[in-house]
Design a binder for these strands. Structure first.
Lengths: 336, 336
DNA sequence: TTGTATGCGTTATCAG
DNA sequence: CTGATAACGCATACAA
């Protein structure tokens, strides 16, 4: 007979009561030892010995029921195969681990019905908090559980943590200028909602205007438009086999990669003919070089801030929008 | 002082008892309605109405305590920023979701002490199962919780799910041959443990021998050797500015990417001078083209199988090693 | 079919 | 400082 047999699972191992009996002490004393409270040395030793003999395993459901604290945080993300979300999941999980908290991972695949279900599930599980990255416009914010969002501002009572998207846009414009670009464009595909990442464009435009750098903008709506819009845009801006732009700032690294493929098909070389800067800071295979030159989101800091904030819970003392600094990183799509 | 006597409950909302009182039925009836058991229509409606009025939220800690089932599975992974692990996390989470189970994500960062802690934590949480991808040689397998592993065989009582690494190796050799290669090599960096992925080499070697295709093998030990071993290897096999191999099979896509960079530095072009096949099936940004030509692991099937197996629990009726078929996918590192 | 009562493992209160 | 005991919210055996 192999392990895992025996259904239903026989009632899980010894309890505090068993330990108490084995050690010849009271139940409460065992609890105090387990929780590291002050206990007479002789008692502590007896309890620890009994725990060892019995192979006692602490049961968190009991504690959760009693204290209404689960030490668990739900993380709601569209997916985990996109490298940016993977990175976020990674750092949030580590930040929670440092604080002895657990992570309940919930993936929505951009399905709003599923998202609602997951929020309910989190409530049923009495998680201590929810960290949510969602583009659902009518997300129902639970009343009784602290919730923070990434990149999406809902209201002053729901803290939103985001990278400094505006400054990132400014940074990209200045960098392209510094690299000698004389005519640039910003390309983006995004949802229709007023999310924080939209400020990438605002920063870029604002800096271009200020520097007197000629620019254009091509923004498509992810839910409606096809990416072939970008083909059209690029073709319209080809003249004599050359692209009219010598610098591009693109909303995400992922889209940058797509655009670069399109440029290659048009015979435009990167970075020789046009230099490209993306956004996010995605590395090849997670730890190698940057996929493209990019504005790097401070993912570890975002994660840390989310965890810190959601566990802090006194939202009245917390800013409703927390903006973290970005940085520029060179990849192979700029000339430096 | 008792909780009920004047002190309002802190955050816990209404309970089944409250619903029962509100609906004018018994506690058990509420439970039966909530669990979808047979209940008279009039009663069901009264209960549902009361649930709605009170905003009752089911509390899973109570149920877990009572039934010793948490509907939660712990997933133990080295990290989530490596795209292969991210993919695995993604598909496992979806497979669990389909079965109304939750995922407790645990990252080890290859720290064995942390790994032990996490297993303990999973036991304390009374998870219904553990899915573990670890290279820890002396992992302590919990007695009382079904555990399955990915890529690492421990014993017949611990089911191991893996891709068909051997066939993948064979496939790579045959493909290189088919693509006209006349002298090939296999490069790998791996742990010293006897993991399933080691069979990639065995399959490759076996097929090369059978086809009479000249080959060499360069395997380094991840924990000890430096990647500069590969530089040496490549340099030793350069003659007259050309690489002696015209085909390479590399243990992972990630390493393939690294090797390709090294080749480029040596002035060797891919795929013109040497064709390269990796292993894993990593796509750019998770959903674009394959990073390199590759043997694709069936990640969704692996995830599905892990979840199915770990929840099934009758391990006596489960093979102790489950091998799933791989496939070849063209990237830009082969000529086709 | 519905009601009642008990206990799951823990924490916290109160009395010794 | 320790012992005893009452909840916490739920599922379920048993009684009606």
């Amino acid at each position: 007979m192999k392990r895992g047999d025996g259904i239903p699972r026989e009632h899980s191992g010894p309890t505090m009561a068993d330990v108490a009996k084995e050690a010849g002490v009271a139940l409460g004393t065992v609890s105090r030892v387990v929780n590291g409270e002050q206990v007479g040395e002789a008692f502590r030793e007896k309890v620890l010995a009994a725990i060892d003999r019995l192979g006692y395993k602490y049961n968190s459901s009991g504690r959760a029921l009693r204290t209404d604290e689960t030490n668990t945080v739900a993380v709601i993300m569209p997916n985990a195969d996109n490298p940016f979300f993977g990175l976020l999941v990674h750092h949030i999980c580590l930040a929670l681990g440092k604080r002895k908290r657990r992570m309940l991972l919930c993936l929505t695949e951009n399905d709003r019905a599923r998202e609602t279900e997951l929020i309910q599930m989190a409530q049923q599980n009495r998680v201590d908090g929810i960290i949510s990255l969602t583009y659902n416009p009518d997300l129902v914010i639970p009343e009784n559980i602290p919730l923070v969002t990434i990149d999406r501002f809902f209201s002053v009572s729901v803290p939103c943590i985001a990278a400094d998207n505006f400054s990132g846009g400014v940074m990209a414009a200045k960098k392209l200028r510094e690299l000698g670009c004389t005519r640039v464009a910003f390309l983006r595909a995004a949802s229709e909602l007023p999310t924080e990442p939209k400020k990438r464009k605002d920063g870029f435009v604002s800096a271009c205007v200020e520097m007197g750098l000629p620019f254009e903008v091509k923004a498509i709506v992810e839910e409606k438009d096809s990416f072939s819009e970008f083909d059209r845009f690029l073709q319209e801006h080809m003249s004599g086999g050359r692209l009219e732009f010598d610098g591009l700032f693109i909303g995400t690294d992922s889209l940058a990669w797509i655009i670069i493929k399109k440029l290659r098909e048009l015979g435009v070389r990167v970075p020789e003919d046009v230099q490209v800067i993306g956004f996010d800071g995605i590395r090849m295979f997670g730890n190698q070089e940057y996929a493209v030159s990019t504005i790097v989101q401070p993912v570890a800091e975002i994660a840390e801030t989310c965890v810190h904030t959601v566990l802090f819970r006194h939202f009245s003392n917390v800013p409703s929008l927390i903006i973290l600094p970005v940085s520029y990183a060179k990849g192979s799509t700029t000339r430096e």
